[in-house]
Design a protein around this nucleic acid. Structure first.
Lengths: 399, 399
DNA sequence: ATGATTAAGTCCACCTACTGGACTAATAAT
DNA sequence: ATTATTAGTCCAGTAGGTGGACTTAATCAT
């Protein structure tokens, strides 16, 4: 990921001779912006809230909240619900996030398919669209993705098209300079040099953010899933490979290059296999001779699961051992509130793995999250929503 | 760690019936407080800076900075340096952190010893003090620590005594409810229930913060060591056990209970040893029959090192393998800018381990940090300085 | 030497966004 | 009917960052 695209707390003065590294200052405007985010977040986490509730929750003055809510309502981000009377006193008017208050487009670029999703402020999916992709040809792929995005936007009612706040892209990582250079279909490394984000920005005019698929899945899990409203969460993502999205201090943690959570590449001590080989779908498909490019791959995996048998049991045991181990390890490293397993994988498989892991009575139980081919695309779409509307440190600083 | 003692972004309304979880709002005052922190941090990271430099770096108006600098100068936190003329224009007056501008006391409570350190705003150590401790007896230990702290403060000049901003405590973790209950000398688990922080707060009247030793070491490394000015750092800490302090997004990351980084307890897959048994000082002392309670333990370890021999080589190899593995793993998980090894251990041992790890050409080279019996105490003292003067999210929010 | 240019820092009037208290509105308990 | 309680508005006040004009002190060009 371009560093410029990630939130950047320290700013290097480009004074050439004398670069000064410093945290940006905070001004009135930044505080105001933050307070709007805090309101939206509070409503997303708690459901509809009245101005009085919001004032208490944020510790801001009633008046301040009155102003903010009014402003958000007129700009179409909040809608008033019916007044509710609870005990004595004047009935409160709760406000909820406006359906379509803001829209976001997400695109997942995967080995064999591109998927787009349109999501609104509440995290509701408004439309889905996909198209087969040949991962060997990024040029043609880019064209296809561009067209898919154009179609996706064209299908929106003209009056809401202007409410799109950004484009999220998700694809397999890692993106940093240390990423392995093997340019095969599996890692999709040859897509990355292409300035994908810049090109899609040019093609769409939208603000663009690039995440790896595990980070995207965690973003989805945070906006609409099990990680909703939690502060510290490990979100394991099982797809072709294995990754983790880390939510730390209430924000997705990316690290220096956005490559945090690349746990698939952890070497198992005392052997030269990688964790990923033992746990992810690629290994499953290899073991059970399911062709990964097959559009009916999910159905075939489910068939293997229902058929059962000792080979399957053995695979599950081995995978659960690896998964349980990495879950415990990440729990020790990050001391989280929850560990979630989600994935682009058939739900029965994730269910079975979750049960197998939890059967070993780990310190932190594994929770089952989204098991859906669309998680990553949803997470991609969730990113611009989070970027624009979630409270975060960077939103409190200048510029 | 009491959750109340850790920075808490989400606040639970104690409305009993209807708890609302929300991020606090931001006000004028919080922004002002943040800007003061940003100034102090910028000077700490870059060295003396003029008002103009600071204005550019923080993107605040010249005037704003003039006000802030004046205020910080009169409150004794900054001092003007001699004006420097650089090319054309009026010479700039750089400001530096005032020696003794603020003081902090740190106490390390270890298995056999208690150490106190007084540190100033710049991270300079003003005094050290230690006393032997019998870890079996927390009651007597608490008295001893209290006396040690009283002595430490009494030895300060009366006019600076009022400048103490807090008391940092560091001791072996973990602190969370999942911590193993074995109450032996090694884990010091029986110290933890004692409400240590609360009691020392009562005894000293100072604001108290409790960290595990690895977190403290990372805090020291951040204020005065290799992690200075970096945003994402893994700091491995080798003492009796092995731990990690994680600096993520420029702040020490603690997790739910302040137990993040407890990597010593990671089980090595396919065996039932813990990582710690392979890497830390406890294992070394056992292997080479060095009594851990011996006050001359360091010298004896160094003797083993200089003597050398195949047993030593084997131990180093095994430890370096474990250390290198965990360093790589944490680098994959957190995608950091640097991985640092520090410890309460003889410098030659850490040097040798660092070399052995780097000989294997890891993706991220291990850097040698503080190797000093006083790191943890220094880190304990650094915490209140960081808490009061480092820019952080929480400082921008209400109350 | 003298004036032009550049940069640091001050002065001062201004603006923005949060604040606190008085006030109104609507409901429940007595 | 009266009182208590809570939601929400009105309005004047305040804190703190802002922007532009101005002063000071250096270098550079002539």
């Amino acid at each position: 990921m371009d560093e410029a695209l990630s939130a950047c707390q320290y700013v290097l003065m480009n004074d050439a001779a004398n670069p000064i590294k410093a945290v940006l200052g905070a001004g009135l405007g930044a505080a105001a912006a933050h307070n709007r985010r805090a309101v939206i977040d509070a409503i997303r986490v708690n459901g509809p809230l009245s101005r009085a509730d919001l004032a208490r929750a944020t510790r801001l003055a009633k008046q301040t909240l009155s102003n903010i809510v009014e402003e958000l309502e007129t700009s179409g981000l909040l809608v008033a619900c019916d007044p509710v009377t609870e005990g004595r006193g004047k009935p409160a008017t709760p406000y909820d996030l406006a359906p379509m208050g803001a829209l976001s487009v997400g695109v997942q670029i995967d080995r064999t398919v591109a998927r787009t999703v349109v999501m609104d402020l509440r995290g509701a999916v408004l439309s889905r669209r996909d198209a087969p992709l040949r991962s060997r040809d990024p040029e043609a792929g880019l064209k296809l993705v561009t067209r898919l995005l154009a179609d996706t936007r064209a299908a929106l009612a003209p009056d809401v098209r202007g409410r799109i706040v950004g484009l999220g892209i998700a694809m397999p990582g890692p993106f940093g300079p240390d990423a392995p250079a093997t340019r095969d279909d599996y890692t999709m490394a040859h897509w990355r040099g292409a300035g994908l984000a810049a090109q899609l920005h040019a093609a769409t005019g939208l603000e663009v953010a690039l995440q790896n698929d595990a980070a995207a899945a965690a973003t989805a899990e945070r906006l609409t899933g099990r990680a909703h409203g939690l502060r510290d969460v490990v979100c394991l993502y099982l797809g072709y490979g294995l990754g983790a999205g880390l939510i730390l201090n209430g924000e997705l943690y990316g690290g220096r290059h956005g490559d945090a959570g690349e746990i698939g590449m952890i070497p198992l001590p005392g052997s030269d296999t990688l964790l990923e080989h033992q746990v992810a779908l690629a290994g499953f498909c290899e073991t059970f001779a399911v062709p990964m490019a097959d559009p009916r791959m999910f159905a075939r995996i489910e068939a293997v699961l229902t058929r059962g048998g000792p080979a399957l049991d053995a695979w599950i045991d081995r995978a659960a051992a690896g998964l349980g181990w990495v879950a415990q390890m990440l729990a020790l490293v990050t001391d989280p509130q929850a560990v979630i397993l989600c994935g682009t994988a058939p739900r029965p498989l994730l269910e079975r793995l979750t049960q197998a892991v939890n059967a070993a009575a780990p310190r932190v139980a594994l929770q089952l999250g989204h098991a859906d081919p669309w998680v990553v695309a949803m997470g991609a779409a969730a990113e611009p929503i989070a970027r624009n509307f979630d409270p975060k440190y960077a939103a409190l600083l200048k510029s």
